[in-house]
Design a binder for these strands. Structure first.
Length: 466
RNA sequence: GGCGGCAUAGCCAAGCGGUAAGGCCAGGGACUGCAACUCCCUUACCACCGGUUCGAGUCCGGUUGCCGCCUCCA
């Protein structure tokens, strides 16, 4: 089935048709690296990593690009405050970013272009916009002439005059119109800067994405994504820049994820109500955070709280237990049965349900539900006296593959119990055989106090870390 | 002021015209020496008021309450 994507441009779900068959060009706006990312920033990273995984699952060759904004006002400010070079600061937080997203099970993009590596391209791009009359120099700055671009407002669905009401005009403004935005900013004394035809300066915020997307992916890309707050003005401005420059559609599909809220309010750096991924992953399993993010449809807001994380922990554990129990059974040299076809069929049905959910605008909430269907099925199967190896492997394969699309690993890194533990388990088995339950329970309680939970099954003693 | 989103069980959350997925928690039962794991069962007049329809959480209008964008922001 074709994937349906909700396109912000049309406010509708549309069948996904890539520019080039079998290939997807995808650009996701990345972080401004002056701090650790917070869990609100982590949402798009997780969501679009999952989108990318699913596109690949469907057989697409995905060229996934995500940029780093490594020069801007906030970075300069942060660097000044702690007395660090801009380059050192950004290098540090880029490394931190990778560490954080890896913990969250996200892969690196195929390309991570940086603004400071594309200054030349940006200057050239701005030059073309000036030549075409879409931009003008003013006192060392260069601004985009918003009213010149016909489609301005088409992404945020606002007319240019409505936008103007809300626009603020800064004192000493050098713009022709309040809605114009900076493509190039003249350097203030002592600031990091590059030479340009308009004097020393640095790029404005929006221009980088237009330029780097084009440099890496070309004039028109398939999917452009980011947080809802980027719709306006960032993405609106990108469209204005790119389409004025390229004379082509910039992106065919625009995806925007909802916010992460805390106490029902948007988490944001300016409000100061944020939790960094760097901190939270010391306290909770980052896989739980990822799972939690995917239990809500990406366009809806998601409210973060300790309660909801506790729920997610338990839920993920159920999935992991199902997986672990399958592995355990497989190790017990599975017997033969004759019901394989029925079960194999059920596995396929669950997989189909997962795909249907993901095809429908990446409905991960329903995809997760399909995983739980699979868990119930496999648990039921494990209650059978005889199991077959190929069925167990089918369950494990489906679990691994589908959870993998969601970026969730069901494997738990339980180290082998030491010899001492083995001996105790053996002793307990002996005691149980002799109906010495007092001693057996003593051993079980002792192991429990060490965080080892025993589970007696028909196939033998199974254990796990509590 | 302009634009937009959301209100579904104790909690989280799908569903977007045909008589309410899934998860967590709770209660009951089965399994077990007892547990654990697991399985089965139980828990929703879908914010409110009108309307369209044979039929509406699901479409239309209105009300109330939250939230967001219009300014740096994922």
């Amino acid at each position: 089935m074709t994937i349906q994507i909700f396109n912000t441009l049309t406010r509708k779900k549309e069948p996904f048709v890539p520019i080039e068959e079998g290939k997807v060009k995808m650009y996701v706006c990345g972080p401004t690296v002056y701090n650790y990312i917070h869990i609100g920033n982590a949402r798009p990273v997780i969501v679009y990593d999952t989108v990318r995984n699913y596109l690949e699952y469907k057989g697409y060759d995905v060229h996934f690009v995500s940029n780093f904004t490594d020069v801007d006002d906030k970075i300069i400010k942060a660097a000044n405050e702690i007395g660090e070079e801009v380059g050192e600061l950004t290098e540090r937080f880029i490394a931190a970013y990778f560490a954080d997203i890896e913990a969250l099970g996200c892969r690196h993009a195929d390309d991570h272009p940086r603004v400071t590596d594309h200054i030349r391209d940006i200057i050239d791009f701005i030059g073309v916009l000036i030549d075409k009359g879409y931009a003008y120099e003013s006192g060392g700055d260069v601004y985009y002439r918003t009213r010149k671009f016909d489609g301005y407002g088409k992404l945020s669905q606002q007319s240019i005059d409505e936008l103007k009401v809300g626009a603020r005009i800064q004192p000493g403004e050098k713009k022709e119109d309040a809605l114009d935005f900076a493509l190039w900013k003249a350097a203030k004394p002592g600031e990091i800067s590059w030479e340009s035809p308009w004097g020393a300066g640095r790029p404005g915020w929006h221009i980088e994405c237009s330029v780097m997307a084009r440099e890496v992916l070309g004039d028109t890309i398939d999917i452009h994504a980011g947080g809802q707050d980027l719709t306006f003005p960032h993405h609106e401005n990108e469209i204005a820049q790119s389409e004025a420059h390229n004379d082509k559609t910039f992106a065919n599909y625009w995806m925007h994820n909802g916010y992460v809220n805390i106490d029902n309010e948007k988490m944001s750096k300016s409000l100061g109500n944020f939790i960094t991924v760097h901190d939270i992953r010391q306290k909770i399993d980052p896989q739980v955070l990822r799972y939690f993010m995917l239990t809500v449809h990406y366009r809806n807001p998601i409210n973060f709280s300790s309660e909801v994380i506790a729920d997610a922990e338990n839920a993920l554990e159920r999935l992991r237990t199902a997986y672990r129990n399958l592995m355990f059974r497989l190790e017990q040299t599975a017997d033969n049965g004759d019901q394989a076809d029925i079960w194999l069929h059920k596995v396929r049905e669950a997989q189909k349900a997962f795909e249907d959910a993901m095809d429908d605008d990446f409905n991960t909430a329903n995809a997760v539900a399909a995983l739980f269907d699979l868990a119930r099925l496999s648990n039921t199967y494990l209650n059978e006296k005889n199991t077959q190896k190929d069925v167990l492997q089918a369950f494990l394969g489906a679990f691994g593959k589908l959870a993998g699309v969601l970026g969730i690993s069901l494997e738990t890194a339980d180290e082998l119990p030491g010899e001492e533990v083995d001996a105790l388990i053996a002793e307990r088995e002996e005691a149980r055989k002799n109906r010495d339950f007092k001693r057996a329970d003593e051993i079980r309680d002792h192991l429990l106090s060490q965080g080892i939970i025993l589970e007696d099954t028909r196939q033998g003693v199974r254990w796990k870390r509590g």
